[in-house]
Amino acid sequence: MADTTTRMKPRPLSPHLQVWRMTLTMAMSIAHRITGAALYFGMLLVAWWLLAAAAGPNAYAIFESFIGSIIGKLILFGFTWALIHHALGGVRHFIWDMGRGFEPSEREMLALATLIGSIGLTVVLWVIGFMVIGGGSQ
């Protein structure tokens, strides 16, 4: 263990976000972290859902009325997109972990694929969701 009482010369720090021009890959990197943090708090919603189901019909009705409201639907839509975007962003990280996809064109392609893929899959999932409501029991 080093002697921590010794005055240490400050270690050099690399420049942070503010000195760089925003690029797509950079935006996707930030989005990965933000969606991760959003999903972290989104788990409150999952916990509420499961506890309400376990608590009984009255508690479940309160949850359903919230999730069926405009605010609830917006949060659920955001949760869906964040989950898919974070998952696809994770796949992008796995590709990098295997030492591939580092060329400039590949990085741009992966960033674009993450964005288009997450938006596309979110819309597809919500269309399926509304079709299930339409075709399922009321």
């Binding site: 189901a53 376990a54 009984g56 019909p57 479940y60 009705a61 989950l83 998952a87 994770g90 796949v91 999932l125 399926i128 969701g129 299930v132 409501i133 399922g136 029991s137 009321q138």
Partner: peptide, 24 residues
């Protein structure tokens, strides 16, 4: 989680529009 999230999404989607008893 790539696999388990897919399972979660399928489970959650399949419960849309179902009443409390069926969900339980």
């Amino acid at each position: 989680l790539l696999f388990l999230s897919c399972a979660f999404v399928v489970i959650a989607t399949s419960l849309i529009g179902r009443n409390h008893a069926a969900t339980v």
